[in-house]
Write a protein that binds this DNA or RNA. Structure first.
Ligand SMILES: [Mn+2]
Ligand SMILES: [Mn+2]
Ligand SMILES: [Mn+2]
Ligand SMILES: [Mn+2]
Lengths: 222, 222
DNA sequence: ATTAAAATTTAGATGAGTCTAAAAATATTT
DNA sequence: AAATATTTTTAGACTCATCTAAATTTTAAT
């Protein structure tokens, strides 16, 4: 039973929402993500339930079945592999890849995606630091924290971003922050949680809105 | 004014048919190519005419406007570039690329296709020997002839195929015939136009059905 | 020049995906 | 516990792309 492009987008939306919320996914949350009206979502939920891709109880929200989860993760896998391709092979910047990957993720060819993965040397993460699911739908999660949760006085490495909007990524570009950049947390202001960070020997101030969207892990060597 | 995937497929079909027929393209010819009923084609022709992509006179067939021609050629350009990508970078065989390219040709991103072209080193022909239109919709046609029209006693180089069905391409693979292969026309049978051809020092017999689908040009050095 | 055949268009219906407006169910406040 | 607000579903309609069956036009044959 083949899935349409639209169904794939719904599955992916449900998957991403369920990643953050853990519990059942609401109609409204999906509507917001998909940018559609709640009534349209209800219609689609019935279809996905008929195909056993989600379990759906009226008024109670939905969650993915194992079949649905695998379908969703497969789309995520394709999306992230294509993003790597665009950056590594086609000179795209990391803020330019998402929209094109949204199209490419729906191309149906098993051989295509397997060969693409090989061409890219089996990358583990996409240009935004998000893990790439393997063929079996397994995801290797690394223990990363938000920079806002980091401890004063310690050194970190940037390993990803939460918000991958073009605006935010361009902000990071401006201050030469990318995946792998070393960040030293000098100080944190109690009043507004803004942070003094040293990057490439430059000291900059980051608001909570910024530090809440940068993933880091403790730098090797303290 | 954006074109839908379906409209793009109709434009491409009309373009390809007009290449062989020269004159107006008939509703039935399109229906056959698209694998749809004639009534569906009529509906779409009205839409394409409204968008000034074709000129359409009831019962009299259609032809592409300049705007429509450019749109069609752009799809062809993408299709063929993707085919090169699949063969050169992803280890696809020349009989495996068409269906995937049918999907990829509809991806919308100018940067994507320009960068892809650069990654592939600006190829001039696709894996089946068909020319790749340039950014401006110009097509560099080489003077090739069908092997069936070749002269006995002369040597040729295979430069393309007319039929690029998997069945035909696998036949060519079996006899180690590909783009660039040298073919020497030894003899031609008057009765059925079958030919005796020498390839890689092997003599083989090809029926008219075969020689009618192989493009060749005179081998350099007579 | 009629008639028959073939090609094309129209009319009406269907399914996928969406919408608005109204109804129903659930959650929150008083 | 009622009243109110929010969320979700239903009902009915729309667009796109398709179909079948019938009507029309063009082409070919008598
Ligand atoms: Mn993305
Ligand atoms: Mn990403
Ligand atoms: Mn092709
Ligand atoms: Mn081709």
């Amino acid at each position: 039973m083949l899935t349409t492009l639209t169904e794939e987008n719904y599955l992916k939306a449900i998957y991403h929402i369920s990643q953050s919320t853990q519990s059942e996914v609401s109609t409204n949350a999906i509507a917001q993500k998909i940018d559609a009206k709640a009534s349209s979502v209800t219609d689609m939920l019935k279809k996905l339930a008929d195909k056993n891709l989600i379990t759906y109880i009226k008024y109670r929200g939905v969650h993915l079945t194992e079949k649905g989860r695998l379908a969703a993760v497969d789309i995520v896998r394709k999306h992230r592999l294509w993003e790597v391709f665009l950056v590594d092979k086609l000179n795209f910047a990391w803020d330019e890849v998402h929209d094109v990957a949204e199209q490419l993720e729906h191309i149906k060819s098993q051989k295509l995606i397997n060969e693409l993965e090989a061409l890219l040397d089996f990358p583990t993460h996409d240009p935004h630091g998000d893990p790439i699911p393997d063929k079996n739908g397994q995801i290797h999660r690394t223990n990363k924290i938000l920079l806002s949760q980091a401890e004063v006085g310690k050194s970190y490495t940037c390993v990803g971003v939460l918000d991958s909007s073009s605006d935010f990524l361009k902000y990071l570009d401006k201050y030469k922050i990318g995946i792998g950049t070393a960040l030293q947390l000098e100080d944190k202001e109690d009043f507004d949680q803004s942070m003094n960070i040293i990057i490439n020997d430059d000291a900059i101030v980051m608001s909570k809105a910024i530090t809440n969207n940068i993933y880091v892990k403790l730098h090797k060597g303290n």
